[in-house]
Design a protein around this nucleic acid. Sequence first.
DNA 1: CTTCGTTACTGTAACGTTGCACTCAAACCA
DNA 2: TGGTTTGAGTGCAACGTTACAGTAACGAAG
Lengths: 370, 370
Amino acid sequence: MGTVTIQQVAAEAHVSPTTVSNYLTGRSERMQPETRDRVRAAIDRLGYRPNRAARALRTGKTHSIGLVVPSVANPFWGTFANELERASIAAGYSVLLGNTERDAARELRYVEDLWDAGVRSIVLGTSLPSLEHLQPFLDRGLRLITFDRPVQPTDPPSVMSVSVDNSVGGYLGAAHLLGLGHTRVSFVAGAMQSLNRTARYRGFCSALTEAGLDPAEQAQWSGTDAVPAGAAEAAEIGREAITAMLAGPRPPTAVMAINDMTALGVCSGIRALGLSIGADVSVVGFDDIVLATLCDPPLTTVRQPLPDLARLALREAVGDDDDAATRGGSVLLRPELVVRGSTGPVPEVAIGRRSGPATRVVAGDPRLVS
Amino acid sequence: MGTVTIQQVAAEAHVSPTTVSNYLTGRSERMQPETRDRVRAAIDRLGYRPNRAARALRTGKTHSIGLVVPSVANPFWGTFANELERASIAAGYSVLLGNTERDAARELRYVEDLWDAGVRSIVLGTSLPSLEHLQPFLDRGLRLITFDRPVQPTDPPSVMSVSVDNSVGGYLGAAHLLGLGHTRVSFVAGAMQSLNRTARYRGFCSALTEAGLDPAEQAQWSGTDAVPAGAAEAAEIGREAITAMLAGPRPPTAVMAINDMTALGVCSGIRALGLSIGADVSVVGFDDIVLATLCDPPLTTVRQPLPDLARLALREAVGDDDDAATRGGSVLLRPELVVRGSTGPVPEVAIGRRSGPATRVVAGDPRLVS
DNA sequence: CTTCGTTACTGTAACGTTGCACTCAAACCA
DNA sequence: TGGTTTGAGTGCAACGTTACAGTAACGAAG
């Protein structure tokens, strides 16, 4: 075939294959300039490209990192994938992609696959509660960086975590709403066991408490038991939640959602009831996905600095062992509140007294907590 | 190290490495059941996993396909990536991801990289007009499947294409608007040289002509010269376009956009002028991305059957040489019109006579054609 | 004048797999 | 019975690279 090997280059340059290899792997400093030129010229002349499979076989290393996310169809993960991939390429790595749809079996399958493909660093976006199933690979030396998933006390100690400070994010969102005068502020999450929910809700609560409100008295929607797989499902949960809440005994004037997709669902539900977003009900999201600026009104949200997060995740994934000081620890970046049109001052007339929504009540829904 | 090799399995099963290899590569039919069981047992006992680098080196084949798209941050491409990846996994392939940001140099870099990694099939989503720069790889046997990019007469003959029938899509969108009684129907595209634009616009025009309208008399927005890189830019173009058109001498009552992001931008522009989408101005998009259902009103659009397209692209990418009858040809799937809230009957009072928009005119914009 | 160290390279042996040619029985056919 | 075919498995030699040990040349130190 037309494949040019290192031997052919060596012959062309009148040196040994080892010398060519040395040149290629960066040890060109300890070479006569004249030899180096001969090698370079030979490579150019023959159009030589190193064979990565041979390299990987010999060295046991790949220049690939794995990225395992719920689904790149979700703009949040798509954007993160994009940023991580961009950073990787700049660092000379390629990205192998896997979508788990939040299925533990698929996640395991991907990790196995990636391991077999020689990948030894995986950025994992699936926030499953336990990492037990990956223990065998961690034992064999897999470098695992969880993204957007708070570290659990039971996690294996070698696992690294890169994410935004969710607690701060929750606080920022709630504080913004409280600052606008709202006192009936609800929190809407996809599922009880969503790992991000905990920290975000904690921050949310602490802002409420600081303002003299009792979080336990605020309506809170815990969603269905299933973690929403797709973007559409996440939105649907928001729609359900707000519909039930506004029909409840103590309808909120402001809502903080676990993420932007759910927030958009909330908005859609508000509109369906004939109410105005930002005027009648304020909505805060989380993530700041592209859609947040495109919807009407644009969404006030807590922005995750995805480019920075991606860079950090990559550093942990490909950094030197000693340079990775955070081995087993977490990096938390500070999120930023982006105020747009979906939030506004508390309405003069409480919604509960208005007509309309009450007729569409789904009363006593068990998922509507407190 | 803890790596188990085929020799160790062979020793454990008291057979030769070749026999184990035969078992692994599916030639287990011509083996004594008893031997087969011994091999299987040995593999299980030792937890053997084949080394892919060695395999790739020996056979020259990888079980990876490349996916090169503008950006998975764009929901359209994210969804396609997701579908392709899902289909690939089911077929035993992994996906290597590259985001080009529509930059020819980056595209080339990815193809080089992927080739070096042993990838011999690439699904290419970047719609650059020319594929010349990839010719060297095509000569060496690269299997290239372009997606969402109509075949150009000058394309190398071995390139395959999978996409939706854009002409039919343009026709469906226009026909829907004409059916609603609209007679001032504009077409908004991101850029003149967008390859999709041609076919979609052709279909659009043929529907107009059939209805007795002269396409040349309809306003048409050709966008800036640069192809929009990100999702946000695509939306911005829509916003600009509609703002200028509605301020023009013959404001449209209906708009068909080159894709959903641009359509959403159009919607946003319409709202900014205080007009109502679907009532004052009807909008049709193209693609049917997730956002199309989530925005307000939900977007009428021409749906691309992404799961089917992904399956087809994969088949071309991994199929047998002889089974790939479409080598060098195109597969065009029929798109489907999805009618939602953004389109409605032509308004009684033409917009031009109403107040408001005229005050915000950006008159005589050179990009506003005819 | 030996010994040592340094520089600049070379030779060899893997890395783990599979294709191919081969062997050795047993079964088959005339 | 002799020759051929078939079945089941083996042995060897790569695939293209790099780690490691080695060497030759040469100057400096003892």
